[in-house]
């Protein structure tokens, strides 16, 4: 029998155990980013910007030049870095609290300027790192530690759909929403990430990939149940699809 390895850890991933909870799909998103970096052969010119949130330690897992940025500010950091180093491939990796709440101004304006960066937006409908508080993307009725009875739109408004909102702007080149909850979605998510990085490399402009992701710990669900919950509850609110595409 001859054995051919057809799946292995990407080269640009650092060989350590992550700090993520069991079954947290941040890990899947990390791996996809690393695979794309390897396939596009851009490791030595890629710059990652991760602000606070569960993914603040992104730099421990992907071996590229990295910034750890303040809460919400990664698009500003990435914009400046890219402008000074136009040959680099610069991406931010941000949570929903980070990007859609405290960092709303930075993401909207980076998108509106058409910064040639790639933004990876992990929407898990919750503040993971700080222990499960309500996020701007928390679903109506979804319980969180700061809305123990479920999100009440009369008090807290409705979940913000970032892709749809950013797609109203003229400048962004590529905007898409994908998921990593199950393999069939993950395969598409990788295609989207590849396209997003290519959009940047080809100088076509701002690319934005929203990834619906699980937080089994703060959703209070077992990992497999969390992937089902995402499919049943998040996907109707946050439909997958392409909202803007180059050309």
């Amino acid at each position: 029998m001859k054995e051919t390895k057809i799946f292995e850890k990407p080269k640009s991933m650092i060989d350590v155990t992550t700090h993520y909870c069991p079954g947290c799909t941040h890990g899947v998103a990390h791996r996809l980013v690393a695979e794309v970096i390897d396939e596009l052969q851009i490791q030595e010119r890629t710059v990652a910007v991760a602000p606070v949130g569960c993914s603040v330690f992104l730099y421990n897992y992907i071996n590229v030049d990295s910034y750890e940025a303040a809460h919400g500010r990664a698009p500003a950091v990435a914009s400046a870095c890219k402008r000074l180093l136009p040959d680099s491939v610069v991406f931010s990796y941000q949570g929903d609290g980070d990007l859609a709440s405290i960092g709303m101004a930075e993401i909207v304006h980076a998108a509106n300027r058409g910064e040639k960066i790639t933004v990876i937006f992990i929407n898990n409908a919750i503040y993971g790192m700080t222990g499960g508080q309500m996020a701007p993307t928390t679903l109506v009725g979804q319980k969180a530690t700061t809305c123990p009875l479920g999100r009440d739109p009369k008090l807290a408004g409705y979940p913000i759909r970032m892709c749809e909102m950013l797609a109203t702007l003229q400048a962004p080149a590529y905007i898409t929403r994908v998921s990593v909850a199950k393999p069939k979605y993950t395969i598409k998510a990788k295609e989207a990430l590849t396209k997003a990085f290519q959009t940047q490399i080809e100088g076509k402009g701002f690319s934005f990939v929203e990834i619906l992701s699980t937080c089994p710990t703060n959703w209070g669900l077992r990992p497999v149940d969390a992937t089902n919950w995402l499919e049943e509850h998040m996907m109707p609110e946050f439909p997958l699809g392409v909202f803007k595409t180059p050309e």
């Binding site: 910034y67 400046a80 870095c81 000074l84």
Partner: peptide, 19 residues
Amino acid sequence: LQAESEVAAVNMIFGAAGT
């Protein structure tokens, strides 16, 4: 680059200074 706020401006400085 005219930033959207001083908050963004100083974080652009962070990104730029890092180079």
